[in-house]
Design a protein around this nucleic acid. Sequence first.
DNA 1: CCTGAAATTTCGAGCCG
DNA 2: CGGCTCGAAATTTCAGG
Lengths: 156, 156
Amino acid sequence: MPRQHFDSLDIKILEMLSNNARKPFLEIARETHISGAAIHQRIQKLTSAGVILGFRTEIDPAAVGYQTCAYIGFILNDPTKFDEVVARLREIPEVVDCHFTTGTYDIFARIYARNNAHLLEIIHKRLSLGLGRTETLISFKEVFKRPVPIVSENLE
Amino acid sequence: MPRQHFDSLDIKILEMLSNNARKPFLEIARETHISGAAIHQRIQKLTSAGVILGFRTEIDPAAVGYQTCAYIGFILNDPTKFDEVVARLREIPEVVDCHFTTGTYDIFARIYARNNAHLLEIIHKRLSLGLGRTETLISFKEVFKRPVPIVSENLE
DNA sequence: CCTGAAATTTCGAGCCG
DNA sequence: CGGCTCGAAATTTCAGG
């Protein structure tokens, strides 16, 4: 959704919820001197407006059996085949995101696999589409990860 | 954290919570024929074990003023300077993640900026470290994004 | 893993600008 | 009408077993 009319209360709610989706609404209410029900209503509105896309639980991939994380860049032969590649990527549950990009690659995706052999298997058996070629960047380590900052100046 | 001893209840909880961090514990309880308090205890244990890393609210970046998303790959002159680059990246709040990679780049990061001019400003003013060179891939569109699948077979 | 109680979330009704 | 408060029912959280 494009930008909406936010007031400073919306900003505070988004800031507080960003890092902790289960932060008690009454805590937010006390910090903003407003009723818990009003906070609840604001959050519903932000959700139905598409500003809040969802509440996700971040799970350690290694703890659930994914030792390998990789980026895959696609260089397409035929630049009209984006949708075909995306359809194939959607069918592979280990692919967690997919972007259309400019620069070295046309499509750029991220994938989790059980191990390097599993990654290779996915690339060879499920990503050899005959539509172009791929390059793989394996991640040794995710050094940090954090949400986008909520900055009220961005909205003025 | 490395892999733990999960039972099928843990798996179910992680599956259900993954897409909806605010799913009522009592709903999970009813679907698993167990008390709400027991679900609560399991979730606490999964959190303190580092399996659950946190509960995040996913916010549409465009709605809070970020029109540009980009990947930045670093090719370092001196491969021992990883930590120095990471320290600089951490100071830039618009940088949302950072990986050590093998392949074309040594370090690979993702960044959100207000617009292309803002992205260029960050790259020129804050990422010209004299430690190597960078390549930028701009994302036109995030086609999809989803959590890693929780698959019990991965844990056997 | 359960019970039970206090705090919190959720939702409908009503109030006020 | 839109945004808030109040109050009741459902849920979360925590202590104790």
